[in-house]
Simulated scan of single mutants.
Amino acid sequence: MSVSVIICAYSHERHAQLNRAIKSVLAQSHRAGELIVVVDHNLPLLNLVSLEFTQAKVIPNSGVQGLSGARNTGIEHASGDIIAFLDDDAIAEPDWLAAMVDQYENPSVIGTGGKVVPLWQVKKPRWFPEEFYWVLGCSYRGQPTHTAQVRNPIGCNMSFRRSVFERVGGFREGIGRTRQDAAGCEETELCIRARQAISGAKILYDPSMVVYHQVTSERLRFDYFWRRCLAEGRSKMQVANAVGVGDALSSERAYVTITLPLGVLRSLAEAFLRFDLWGLARAGSILAGLSFTTAGYVSARLAQMARPA
């Protein structure tokens, strides 16, 4: 099966990171049929990357500004049987595509995702709990440790059959990121929509599909943490409107009732049994993260109810 890899970019500030992402795709043991770099309304960056990487198809985002529009533009230009997505600040391991293609031998598999390992650009603050690594776009405690079905993968390391987009359309615009906006969940909405439409469809998480996500100091500040949690709550409300509350919050129920309480207990045990007082801060951060995310969801819900019919 042929694979088209799509990388979306928008900023000169991430030019060096984008170069590393592109080089990691070009170095795959299973060669990509094509590499498409979609530049989101930034002509100077488009021209620069076009000159630097003649092996890639570098194109402008012809859709609405933002990640969903850029991804949909890439999909329109892709020819592969499988369409894979890598963030512009991520680095794929050499066997990333090889592991991915293996999962599609099962005809019921319509999508895959893999492990996202944080690549710290600065030392990780000790208050930051692993249960909230999703804030950084990385795999978090509570995800499977072996190949398993999931509702949706993390966006910086995912793929789908071309037939999924032919059947249900592309990423829904108005949900995902727009430049520095902290919103997300466009991949969640797509995966739910696809599974609702395709009987027996499976989306797999395979930890052998590894990419490294570069984490800058800006993403490790507490103000980014709470803004990202608030935005996640608002995005979940939009997903619930699009595909229904039951499916939109299916994974969150186990996360809130099992993963987070265990995380608080673990952090408190580290504080009182191992004399790691930062455990108290991690426990507090888990509770704060849950509160911020819930507040984002509730505020979006109240704003919707207040709008005229």
Rank of each mutant, 00 (worst) to 15 (best):
S2R: 04
S2C: 06
H12D: 15
E13Q: 13
H15F: 11
I22N: 06
K23Q: 14
A27Y: 04
Q28A: 00
A32D: 00
E34G: 06
E34P: 07
V39L: 00
Q55I: 00
G63P: 05
G63Y: 02
R71A: 10
T73G: 00
S79T: 09
A84Y: 01
L86N: 04
D87H: 12
D88A: 11
M100P: 08
V101S: 06
G111A: 14
G114T: 08
K123W: 08
E130G: 12
E131D: 14
W134R: 12
Y140M: 15
R141C: 10
G142N: 03
A148S: 15
Q149W: 04
V150D: 07
N152M: 12
S163V: 09
V164R: 08
G169S: 08
E173K: 08
G174N: 11
R177M: 14
D181L: 15
R193G: 10
R195I: 12
I198K: 06
S199L: 07
A201C: 10
K202R: 13
I203V: 14
I203A: 02
Y212P: 06
Q214F: 04
V215Y: 06
V215P: 02
F225G: 02
R227D: 13
Q238H: 12
V239S: 01
S250V: 11
I258T: 12
T259S: 12
P261E: 03
L265P: 05
R266C: 06
S267C: 09
E270Q: 10
D276S: 05
W278T: 13
G284K: 01
L287S: 03
F292K: 11
A295R: 15
G296S: 05
Y297V: 05
V298D: 02
M305L: 14
P308Q: 10
A309L: 06
